[in-house]
Lab assay of single mutants.
Amino acid sequence: MQRVNMIMAESPGLITICLLGYLLSAECTVFLDHENANKILNRPKRYNSGKLEEFVQGNLERECMEEKCSFEEAREVFENTERTTEFWKQYVDGDQCESNPCLNGGSCKDDINSYECWCPFGFEGKNCELDVTCNIKNGRCEQFCKNSADNKVVCSCTEGYRLAENQKSCEPAVPFPCGRVSVSQTSKLTRAETVFPDVDYVNSTEAETILDNITQSTQSFNDFTRVVGGEDAKPGQFPWQVVLNGKVDAFCGGSIVNEKWIVTAAHCVETGVKITVVAGEHNIEETEHTEQKRNVIRIIPHHNYNAAINKYNHDIALLELDEPLVLNSYVTPICIADKEYTNIFLKFGSGYVSGWGRVFHKGRSALVLQYLRVPLVDRATCLRSTKFTIYNNMFCAGFHEGGRDSCQGDSGGPHVTEVEGTSFLTGIISWGEECAMKGKYGIYTKVSRYVNWIKEKTKLT
């Protein structure tokens, strides 16, 4: 034993070699072989497995989906700052455009905790909710729209109204504003409101030439003092309507412009014939205590009207009353817009006519005020429907199939267009061939041609 100890002390290297040989010859039971080890760690190889990531292109799944990435790591994937920024906006807080917040056709661009709407022409605001041009839906104005110097929408209202708090709607500024039905039992019968379409306001006024200088022999019209197929109006439903009495009662109609003036057809009036105007009328054979009678003290036909040349060209006249009318729910003026808007309103496509005229061709006159909704007829169809001249200051309205029309005794009465609950004068009943005849239409004086003249002559002093 002493000898062994001496050998170990003198030859430590020998001992180490012996131990190493023993270990190498022993069977290893701690580690699995290569094949079995792979069965336990069965993990798919990654895209760049075996390579240094710093030297390969980034992978979106590896960089940002398996674990949260930084902007720089995302930049490695896209290799483009702009594309990385677009991805980053949604990656950080989701897609803010998912709810489609942009209105009126706006395009949404996502941002971090926010979004941006790219608005089409005519709109602005956070969600493109603000109209900035009158060309689109009248700028959301209830009545009139004008573009300011910086191309912003400025709404306005006709006389007797003021802008509401929203700067879009119009509200009454006087007790009985024009064009409004205020009798409670008839307010439910107000005709369907007309909503502004998209309009090209630059070209809204037709490029028409008034044929002022045409000389033409007097034409022989049949029954051209021209509501057939209409309905009984309720008291106060058309408070701007008046009836004219002269040699015979209810020979023509008219509309209240203001307390002192009536507008009617020029062919209705004769110099030297006494005319009485009755406002607030409903049943011409009954006294309903809503009527107001006034005498006409002055007749002003349009300066281009000449019955000797043509009885229905420039067929418009103004009547001055001896005493002002007292405005109330049964006696209310009709609204008159400017030339541009009167023309736009007419193009809405349908209007209402009213009167006490004959209820059928050569038949009896109506006792109760009649009204009828009539569609506008395109000019080409209008011209083809008659052998008589249709001037540019006239328009056609009615039904091709016949059966409904204005008729004798309705002449001078109103053709009105309702705009968001307020009625505007767009025409004056003038003439036609018979009444409600198939293929024939009622012919009306186009008020847009005469609004400046009306307003100039009827100013209240």
Score class of each variant (00 low, 15 high):
Cys252Thr: 01
Leu189His: 11
Arg162Trp: 06
Arg162Gln: 09
Arg191Thr: 08
Phe196Tyr: 14
Val277His: 00
Gly439Val: 03
Asp338Lys: 06
Lys455Val: 06
Cys117Glu: 02
Gly58Glu: 04
Cys252Tyr: 01
Cys119Met: 01
Gly351Asp: 01
His267Glu: 02
Cys128Met: 02
Ala308Met: 09
Ile40Lys: 06
Gln219Phe: 08
Val273Asp: 02
His302Glu: 02
Gly402Asn: 10
Ser11Asn: 09
Gly105Asn: 07
Lys339Gln: 14
Trp240Asp: 00
Val4Cys: 11
Ala207Lys: 11
Tyr91Asp: 07
Trp118Glu: 12
Phe348His: 07
Asp405Trp: 08
Pro301Glu: 07
Val359Phe: 14
Cys335Glu: 00
Lys51Thr: 13
Cys382Thr: 02
Ile15Arg: 05
Leu52Gly: 05
Ile309Trp: 08
Lys152Phe: 09
Lys311Gly: 05
Val181Gly: 12
Leu19Glu: 01
Thr422Gly: 01
Glu208Asn: 09
Leu211Thr: 09
His314Leu: 00
Asn135Pro: 15
Cys134Arg: 03
Gly253Arg: 09
Pro333Gln: 04
Glu129Ser: 05
Val419Gly: 00
Tyr391Pro: 13
Ile336Asp: 00
Leu163Met: 05
Asp93Arg: 15
Gly160His: 04
Glu208Val: 09
Gly355Met: 04
Lys455Leu: 09
Glu259Asn: 06
Glu159Ala: 10
Ser365His: 11
Asn283Ile: 08
Gly246Thr: 05
Glu86Gly: 15
Val174Cys: 04
Asp110Glu: 11
Phe395Tyr: 03
Phe238Gly: 02
Glu323Val: 14
Glu54Arg: 08
Gln143Trp: 01
Leu318Asp: 00
Gly432Gln: 06
Pro375Met: 10
Asn42Ser: 13
Phe424Met: 00
Thr458Glu: 00
Ser187Leu: 11
His400Pro: 14
Val263Ser: 02
Tyr444Pro: 00
Thr426Ile: 01
Gln167Phe: 12
Thr16Cys: 12
Val451Gly: 04
Asp93Gly: 15
Arg180Lys: 13
Cys252Leu: 00
Gly105Ile: 02
Asn138Ala: 11
Ser169Lys: 08
Leu52Met: 14
Ser430Leu: 14
His415Val: 03
Ser148Leu: 14
Gly409Val: 05
Val227His: 06
Trp261Thr: 01
Thr342Phe: 00
Ser49Arg: 06
Lys347Gln: 13
Glu67Leu: 08
Val4Asp: 06
Tyr115Pro: 03
Leu327Phe: 14
Ile344Asn: 07
Asp200Ser: 09
Lys168Arg: 06
Pro101Met: 04
Ile7Asp: 05
Ser169Cys: 04
Thr422Cys: 06
Asp410Arg: 09
Ile214Pro: 08
Ile344Glu: 10
Lys126Arg: 13
Arg226Pro: 08
Ala26Tyr: 04
Ala9Tyr: 10
Ala380Trp: 12
Val77Ala: 13
Asp338His: 06
Thr133Arg: 12
Glu98Lys: 15
Lys362Ile: 04
Pro333Lys: 04
Lys339Ser: 15
Pro239Glu: 00
Pro12Phe: 15
Thr276Asn: 09
Gly254Lys: 00
Val242Gly: 01
Val269Gln: 03
Leu163Tyr: 00
Ser114Met: 05
His267Arg: 05
Gln408Lys: 09
Lys347Met: 12
Ser365Val: 13
Gln167Thr: 09
Gly272Lys: 03
Lys126Glu: 11
Gly236Thr: 05
His267Gly: 04
Pro197Ile: 08
Lys274Asp: 02
Lys362Met: 09
Ser148Val: 09
Lys137Leu: 10
Val296Gly: 01
Asn138Gln: 09
Ile284Lys: 07
Tyr91Pro: 06
Asp338Arg: 05
Pro120Arg: 11
Val243Glu: 03
Arg75Met: 06
Lys45Val: 10
Cys119Thr: 02
Leu325Gly: 00
Thr461Leu: 10
Ser350Asn: 14
Asn203Gln: 06
Asn213Tyr: 07
Met8Arg: 13
Pro172Glu: 05
Ile428Ser: 01
Ile309Met: 11
Asn304Ala: 10
Asn258Gly: 03
Gly409Trp: 07
Lys126Asn: 12
Ser354Cys: 11
Leu41Met: 10
Thr342Glu: 04
Val277Ser: 01
Gln57Trp: 05
Glu171Ser: 07
Leu130His: 12
Cys117Tyr: 01
Asn310Arg: 06
Phe399Trp: 15
Glu165Lys: 13
Leu14Phe: 09
Asn306Glu: 05
Asp410Glu: 14
Ile454Val: 06
Val92Trp: 07
Glu86His: 15
Asp315Gln: 01
Ala307Gly: 12
Cys178Arg: 00
Gly349Thr: 04
Gly351Gln: 03
Lys311Asp: 03
Leu346Tyr: 06
Phe348Asp: 07
Tyr47Lys: 04
Phe360Ala: 06
Asp338Cys: 06
Asn203Ser: 07
Ala397Tyr: 02
Arg46Thr: 10
Gly50Leu: 09
Ser329Met: 09
Leu460Asp: 12
Arg191Met: 14
Lys457Leu: 09
Trp88Lys: 09
Glu79Thr: 14
Leu383Arg: 14
Val228Thr: 12
Glu82Asn: 08
Cys252Lys: 00
Asp322Leu: 01
Glu286Asn: 09
Tyr22Lys: 01
Val153Met: 15
Ile262Pro: 01
Gly125Tyr: 02
Arg298Gly: 05
Lys347Gly: 12
Phe87Arg: 15
Asp249Ile: 00
Pro324Asn: 05
Val199Asp: 11
His303Met: 09
Asp232Leu: 08
Ala307Cys: 04
Leu327Ala: 03
Glu67Pro: 05
Asn151Ala: 07
Asn100Cys: 11
Phe87Glu: 13
Asn42Ile: 12
Val202His: 07
Lys440Met: 05
Glu433Leu: 05
Val195Trp: 09
Val242Cys: 03
Ser49Gln: 15
Ile316Cys: 01
Ser49Trp: 09
Lys234Val: 14
Glu270Phe: 03
Thr218Phe: 13
Pro101Gly: 03
Glu98Thr: 14
Gln237Leu: 09
Lys188Cys: 05
Ile454Tyr: 01
Ser114Trp: 06
Gly230Phe: 13
Glu259Met: 05
Thr133Leu: 08
Val263Thr: 02
His314Ile: 02
Gly272Ser: 02
Lys260Asn: 06
Arg62Val: 08
Lys109Leu: 09
Asp200Cys: 04
Trp118Leu: 13
Val92Arg: 14
Asn38Cys: 04
Glu434Thr: 15
Ile454Pro: 00
Cys117Gln: 01
Ala317Leu: 03
Gln216Pro: 13
Val257Cys: 02
Leu376His: 05
Asp378Ser: 11
Val368Cys: 06
Gly355Phe: 15
Cys102Tyr: 00
Glu82Arg: 13
Lys146Gln: 11
Glu116Tyr: 11
Phe238Val: 07
His282Gly: 07
Val326Ala: 12
Cys382Trp: 02
Cys145Pro: 00
Arg62Asn: 10
Glu323His: 06
Cys157Tyr: 00
Ala9Val: 12
Ala37Val: 15
Phe78Asp: 10
Cys170Met: 00
Tyr305Pro: 02
Ser365Thr: 15
Val278Leu: 06
Thr190Gly: 10
Asn213Lys: 07
Gly13Lys: 14
Lys51Val: 13
Ile284Gly: 08
